[in-house]
Design a protein around this nucleic acid. Structure first.
Length: 288
DNA sequence: AACGAGAGCAACCGCACGAAT
DNA sequence: AATTCGTGCGGTTGCTCTCGT
């Protein structure tokens, strides 16, 4: 038996909300709350609307402290960073931007930021020939270490990469690549992902320590003692913006990878997603 | 002024998930 | 364990507005 529809679609109003409907819904919820049942709500109010539609209207437009339009540079940066780390988890991204809704952020991304990012990538490719060569070399080296072909579709379609050596030193690298058409290199993000990991895995991240190979970084050991999460404070968002010193440090890390891989077990968690515009996203573990 | 193309955005659709039964 | 149902979410649609010709 199939699932019953949430409402009688023939008898509900659709399309834009009128000011009267908004006022009814708003005043009812402010006075009585939702009652924990959106499906029953429109009947109680006397609205010929689907419960889901009421919920959407309230969450996106009627509830207090909603901000619309005019995203700040800081908000742009937060969205960029989170999107590149966790993909199109709009509700999660919205939770980091007070007053913004997932729908607003999704629309803003699709209409503006996506184009901005693509423009930046093209500019980056044009301006940074040397950087590209370095990036190519870096990717080649890492992939070869992992027994992968440089032109295999994408970087291990899973991320982050978990590397464990025989001494149980585990390195979790938040490296990701994008569609080769746009970008051909692994890069290391400097997001606030430890916080996200903490929230989503329900695992406490504790005791930051400096990573021996990367100054200005911090490692977080989870309480199970198996995984390390690594933040790259003070590092550029993109490898193309690294200065020579930082690139050398990263090269050192690749060497470190080599050490770890030799005689080690190497695991990476599952799942890849491809955005509608062709970008390959490798999500962190526990985000699948 | 009229028209078409593209951008922006509100709203809908359908699926996944978890709680309840 | 299987089924039902409400909720939340991401993807998509389609309407409205703006701008260029």
């Amino acid at each position: 038996m199939g699932r019953a529809p949430c409402c009688d679609k023939a008898n509900v109003k659709r399309g834009p909300w009128s000011p009267e409907e908004d006022a009814k819904l708003k005043s009812y919820i402010e006075e009585h709350g939702t009652g924990g049942n959106w499906i029953a709500l429109p009947h109680r109010i006397g609205l010929k609307r689907c419960g889901k539609s009421c919920r959407l209207r309230w969450l996106n437009y009627l509830r207090p402290n909603i901000k619309h339009g005019c995203f700040s540079e800081e908000e742009d940066h937060i969205i960029f960073t989170l999107y590149l780390n966790i993909g199109s988890r709009w509700s999660l991204i919205a939770s980091h931007l007070p007053g913004r809704t997932d729908n607003d952020i999704k629309n803003y991304w699709n209409t503006r930021l996506k184009k901005k990012l693509m423009g930046m990538q093209r500019k980056d490719q044009q301006l940074s020939k040397r950087g590209s060569l370095i990036k190519q070399e870096m990717k080649k080296e890492v992939l070869e270490n992992l027994g992968m072909n440089l032109y295999q579709s994408y970087w291990p379609t899973e991320s982050p990469l978990i590397l464990t050596n025989p001494n149980d030193h585990t390195l979790e690298l938040n490296i990701k690549t994008q569609d080769p058409i746009f970008n051909q290199y692994p890069f290391v993000t400097n997001s606030s992902q430890s916080e996200l990991l903490d929230q989503n895995s329900k695992t406490h991240v504790t005791t930051p320590t400096y990573h021996p190979q990367l100054p200005n970084t911090q490692c977080f050991a989870s309480e199970d003692g198996i995984n390390l999460f690594q933040e790259f404070y003070n590092y550029p968002f993109d490898v193309s913006e690294f200065n020579i010193t930082q690139l050398e440090q990263f090269d050192g890390l690749v060497g470190g990878l080599d050490d770890l891989i030799n005689g080690s077990n190497c695991t990476s968690s599952s799942a890849e997603s491809t955005t509608s515009w062709g970008e390959s996203l490798a999500y962190p573990r526990r985000y699948q």
